[in-house]
């Protein structure tokens, strides 16, 4: 049977937050990759040994809070987007 691909980024609806709600402190980040592994939307990369968030993460982030939770070095700050912004699940 023909393989059906799940294009995750095309399947999320997001009202883009006007402000940043995730940030990473490069002083604290040790480049352990936990955030890269855990993000189901693949929004994290390691550049020069430090974690960086994709510049347009606000368009795709599902606010799952996994990246914040797996960072053992307390390098990630996470809050939710302002009320009324962010991920929209019509069929949760």
């Amino acid at each position: 049977m023909e393989k059906l691909l799940i294009e995750k980024r095309e399947l999320v609806t997001v009202i883009e937050s006007p402000v940043d709600f995730i940030s990473v402190d490069h002083e604290k980040c040790v480049g352990c990759k936990n955030c890269v592994i855990i993000c189901g939307m693949n929004l994290w990369k390691i550049r020069d040994g430090k974690a960086v968030l994709e510049t347009d993460y606000k368009k795709f982030c599902t606010e799952c809070a996994s990246c914040y939770t797996v960072c053992d070095y307390d390098a990630i700050k996470f809050t939710f987007p302002p009320g009324g912004y962010g991920i929209v699940y019509q069929r949760g």
Partner: peptide, 25 residues
Amino acid sequence: NVQLDFIQRLIKATRARPREFQLHF
């Protein structure tokens, strides 16, 4: 799981299309 035989048949038989991807704690 989308590749499971049963799911592939279900998709074909009901003319299904992916609508939403969700990630939740």
